[in-house]
């Protein structure tokens, strides 16, 4: 009798233990984490309005019919489309160790494309003609219940004319566009504000500024890079995969 009962008691306990163990292990390794950004309150329209600002991948998911995140973008001409294609590509090289979907970019035709989450303009930044590039917010989605804001649409501007007597390294405009794409992920400037703006020598990041060196002068990115660094990637996602 004892031997008959012993086996089931042991098996049940063993089974429960194994199940608990499997639950804990499986529960941790299958979690698909998503990172959201918390934004500088000074850059929220009207000052502090929300506790959290999610970066824009959610905005892409707002459209009915989407099964996953898509960030739709449009370009004013072939030149800036080319720079943007390159910028997206270099950011996607950071994809391997990230949880978020970096492949959600979708180019859509037509200009001006009102359905785009990001529109890429070729020309002077509105109101700041001296800027090489700028990032303009068009609209937010707000959610009062969680006191959160999600940006929905933005415009990028890039100016590709250079000052007289200067040239640029081949990767200069690609770097400028990659910098703007960094803003679309929620990153801020990392250079020392001016006037004039100056390079940040404490780290290597695509969110740094430009530099002009040599004679005749040559435009280059402060860190002579054309895409994001590990530092940039870490800022977007702090949690390990």
């Amino acid at each position: 009798m004892y031997k008959i009962l012993k086996l089931p008691r042991f098996s049940a306990s063993f089974f429960v233990s194994v199940m608990v163990m499997l639950f804990l292990i499986v529960g941790t390794v299958t979690a698909n984490h998503f990172v959201y950004l918390v934004e500088d309150s000074a850059r929220q329209p009207g000052g502090t309005k929300a506790n959290f600002v999610f970066f824009q991948w959610y905005a892409g998911a707002f459209l009915p019919g989407d099964s996953y995140y898509k960030l739709r973008w449009a370009a004013q001409d072939a030149t800036v489309k080319g720079y943007m294609d390159s910028a997206i590509a270099v950011w996607q090289t950071q994809d391997d160790s990230l949880d978020i979907d970096w492949h959600g970019w979708e180019y859509i035709t037509g200009w001006p494309q009102s359905g785009a989450n990001i529109r890429v303009y070729h020309g002077d930044c509105i109101t700041v003609p001296a800027a090489r590039a700028c990032f303009i917010r068009q609209s937010w989605s707000t959610m009062g219940t969680q006191n959160a804001q999600f940006w929905h649409q933005a415009d990028m501007y890039i100016r590709t004319n250079l000052n007289p007597g200067t040239t640029a390294v081949p990767s200069f405009f690609a770097a400028s566009m990659a910098h703007e794409v960094g803003h679309s992920y929620g990153l801020h400037e990392r250079y020392l504000e001016g006037p004039p703006a100056s390079c940040n020598n404490s780290e290597s990041t695509i969110m740094d500024a430009n530099k002009i060196t040599g004679s005749p002068s040559v435009y280059d990115h402060c860190d002579s890079i054309s895409g994001p660094t590990t530092t940039d990637k870490n800022r977007i996602e702090q949690l390990p995969a």
Partner: peptide, 15 residues
């Protein structure tokens, strides 16, 4: 509503 600008490092250029 301009959230970020990238300026050229030109002396006396207002950023």
């Amino acid at each position: 509503y301009i959230e970020e600008v990238m300026c050229d490092p030109i002396p006396d250029l207002h950023c």
